[in-house]
């Protein structure tokens, strides 16, 4: 009798564990629209899957993140999602999680710790994003001569370096495409606009420019304004391709001002939850790096609908 009761209890416990998990999520903060969208989408994904999400906003401080993870461990969550604010200094807290047998999945950014301290990392490949953007330009201009101006991200930042490298990889061997000017716009609209103004001045009022490649959409949006004010028609006189796929760039595409964008998806949680589910069901070890799709969107992809779908994600 007692045995049966115990067995039933065990079954009940097991089944709840499999169905309604509790997962802790230590987010960096809300410094950008993209980050806000990541938070929104993570909550949505958790809700759809019936997962209880314990959310903690670290406000850009590693010590807050470490404290949050310790508290997740103490609460005995089933897994932890971590978007690390910096790359170093995670060893001891990740070991604590490992000892407590709580799998950790890294979102969006990597850490310098040993690979066996976390289950997997979900992120995009920044070089690949640049390559997708470059390939679009190669396909679009064909054999025509094309002088490209490039708006770089913040000098020395890894997205700026990798997105530049990827784009250059893609146009390599296509001698008709040439980057004639490249300057940093600090990932901001103001920066994009100011630098584009100087590009237009330097390149005969824009007549000598065939395409603009911006390391993010915000700089492209700033540059589009600069072109309009200078009497240049963005999207037609100058092709505009950028990266991130924030809602406003879809609006610009709908207006015909921008041509293409490469998505850096804020949905890192979806693949993370998939990997965790498989791991918990039968112990499947995922790859140590799960690359999210870098999807290309053009004016043909119904930008109005994409804008509507994204505008409330918190971008």
């Amino acid at each position: 009798m007692i045995k049966t009761l115990l067995a039933t209890a065990a079954v009940v416990t097991l089944s709840t564990a499999a169905q309604a998990q509790t997962i802790g999520f230590s987010q960096i903060g809300s410094e950008s629209g993209w980050r806000a969208a990541e938070t929104t989408l993570t909550r949505q994904q958790a809700e759809e899957r019936g997962i209880t999400l314990q959310f903690s906003d670290a406000q850009q401080r590693q010590e807050n993140q470490i404290a949050a993870i310790r508290s997740f461990i103490a609460q005995g969550v089933d897994a932890i999602l971590l978007a690390p604010v910096v790359a170093t200094g995670w060893d001891s807290v990740l070991e604590e999680a490992k000892e407590a047998e709580i799998p950790v999945v890294l979102l969006d950014r990597q850490v310098d710790s040993s690979e066996d301290l976390y289950l997997t990392a979900v992120g995009s490949d920044l070089v690949h994003e640049g390559e997708v953007a470059g390939q679009w330009l190669v396909d679009t201009v064909g054999e025509d001569e094309c002088r490209v101006v490039e708006l770089q991200g913040t000098t020395g930042s890894s997205p700026a370096i990798d997105r530049k490298t990827g784009f250059e990889n893609a146009i390599e061997g296509h001698d008709n495409i040439e980057i004639v000017r490249s300057q940093t716009g600090d990932f901001t609209r103001t920066g994009g606009k100011e630098v584009m103004e100087s590009f237009l001045q330097a390149e005969g009022g824009g007549e000598n420019i065939c395409a603009l490649y911006a390391h993010n959409d915000d700089m492209a949006i700033g540059a589009i304004q600069a072109m309009k004010e200078a009497g240049v028609n963005p999207g037609e006189d100058v092709l505009v391709v950028s990266i991130d796929a924030v809602p406003d760039i879809f609006q610009a595409m709908a207006n015909g001002d921008a041509n293409a964008t490469v998505e850096l998806t804020p949905n890192m949680a979806g693949p993370a939850f998939d990997a965790l589910e498989a791991y918990m069901a039968d112990g499947t070890e995922p790859e140590k790096f799960i690359q999210t799709e870098s999807k290309l969107y053009t004016q043909d992809d119904n930008p109005e609908a994409e804008y509507e779908a994204r505008k409330d994600l918190g971008y």
Binding site: D186, T190, I221
Partner: peptide, 9 residues
């Protein structure tokens, strides 16, 4: 100038 308020930047 950028037709938008960018509180971060």
């Amino acid at each position: 100038d950028i037709r938008g308020a960018d509180a971060n930047n």
